[in-house]
């Protein structure tokens, strides 16, 4: 039987792919937003709210923020792996980043779920 080195032996490719896919989605979505507001700017809060609460727009934003969270997690982890050598320091940095991103995720759910 082939033995692999211990640890997350397979995650390199998965993370690399996810980082690229999330980047592509974020890029495409930003272009969509810029074009959309260039063609039809919204100046009224109620119109803005109706537009935002439409199912497809909300899903679009949800995917965008999920991509941002994934992208920043992989990116920050990558920076820690490169530069932080002491394991305890890397652990603290990753836990802090993870907690921060978790808070953002919960906040995001609050914003995106229809209220009341």
């Amino acid at each position: 039987m082939r033995l692999r080195p211990t640890g997350s032996a397979h995650t390199g490719l998965g993370e690399w792919l996810l980082q690229r896919l999330s980047a592509v989605y974020m890029g495409a979505f930003v272009i969509y937003l810029v074009v959309r507001f260039a063609i039809d700017p919204i100046n009224d809060y109620l119109v803005w709210r109706d537009w935002f609460l439409a199912g497809s727009v909300r899903i679009g934003f949800a995917l965008f923020f999920v991509s941002t969270l994934i992208h920043s997690w992989i990116g920050m982890r990558s920076v820690f792996m490169d530069y932080l050598k002491p394991v305890w320091l890397r652990f603290v940095a990753q836990v802090a980043t993870g907690t921060g991103l978790l808070v953002l995720t919960l906040w995001l759910i609050q914003i995106l779920l229809p209220s009341g």
């Binding site: 082939r2 692999r4 080195p5 032996a9 397979h10 995650t11 390199g12 993370e15 690399w16």
Partner: peptide, 17 residues
Amino acid sequence: GERLDDLEDPYRLFRCH
């Protein structure tokens, strides 16, 4: 296959930026 297996982890290949 084995060569690719050896390169899939986060360090050996994927530290390249």
